[in-house]
């Protein structure tokens, strides 16, 4: 009898595992939102774009003081210059992005022709290459200026990532991003979820672990630790190094898919980049 019950329980559990592993993106997002609501019942949804400062009262005061004279402001200005300055061939970014510069909410998206997730930095470099300009580096440097300007102009736009159903590869890319998020890696054996889902709000030494909801709304970000603005993929790289995993290439498939998944999880939140963090 006991054995029968045990195997039934095992079956049910296995069923549960398969079910959640194969949940739809919308089911994933609903579970995410429910999880954080449960964990931080006093935090309203619209606070999550503020990252750790949505849950860290002391840190928030310092942050608000910093935001009065935002350290990323000069980068926005220089980004605007970049945006407006014609390429050698006389064309500008506007020729590539007629709706620009407020285009951040269009990214990341699935590109059926390319068969891959296209992020904003990738699209910017595509535009440069098409106009005979050298591509920019993806972690540090001037791409951040351009991104800061676009982010600033896009403030208030709602994240609305879609997984188009007419191309199964889109869902595949999303699933890969989700798998990345839950996969433990590095010598320290952490997944993104270990820190930012399971232990969001807890402290590692004095650092409070930020929730994943809202992780993608505020890039590029000026980090005091960096002394400058950096991209989301630079941050991914740093996270992977922290857990003693070899980081992946910025704008490589792994990080683009992760961004696709993470941004989908934040659907409905408002963009508030560029950001500033400790």
């Amino acid at each position: 009898m006991n054995k029968v019950i045990k195997s039934l329980v095992a079956l049910a559990l296995a069923g549960g595992v398969t079910m959640t592993a194969q949940a739809s993106p919308e089911q994933d997002r609903a579970a995410f939102v429910k999880y954080y609501k449960d964990r931080f019942p006093e935090v309203p949804m619209e606070e999550y774009p503020n990252g750790v400062y949505a849950i860290d009262k002391v840190g928030r005061e310092n942050w608000e003081a910093i935001e009065e004279f935002p350290p990323y402001e000069p980068f926005i200005d220089s980004g605007q210059e970049m945006w407006e300055k014609p390429f050698a061939n006389g064309k500008t970014y506007k020729d590539c992005f007629p709706d620009g510069p407020a285009i951040a909410a269009k990214y990341p998206h699935w590109d059926k022709k390319k068969g891959m997730v296209v992020t904003l930095p990738l699209a910017l470099n595509e535009c440069r290459k098409a106009n005979g300009e050298k591509p920019l580096k993806y972690k540090k440097g001037p791409i951040n200026d351009l991104l800061a300007y676009i982010a600033y102009e896009s403030r208030g736009q709602k994240i609305d990532v879609k997984i188009p159903e007419d191309d199964p590869r889109a869902l595949e890319a999303y699933e890969k991003g989700k798998k990345f998020y839950f996969t433990r890696r590095g010598q320290l054996n952490f997944s993104c979820a270990s820190c930012h889902l399971q232990n969001a709000g807890m402290r590692v030494r004095t650092e409070i672990l930020s929730p994943s909801l809202g992780h993608v709304t505020h890039w590029p970000t000026y980090r005091s630790k960096w002394g400058t603005v950096g991209t989301l993929h630079r941050r991914f790289t740093g996270c992977n190094k922290n857990i003693r995993a070899k980081p992946f290439k910025a704008q490589g498939e792994q990080y683009r898919n992760l961004e696709y998944f993470l941004t989908y999880m934040s659907n409905g939140l408002k963009l508030n980049g560029p950001g500033s963090r400790k």
Partner: peptide, 9 residues
Amino acid sequence: KLRIPSYFQ
């Protein structure tokens, strides 16, 4: 194989 951890299931 992706396994959703118990704390999130």
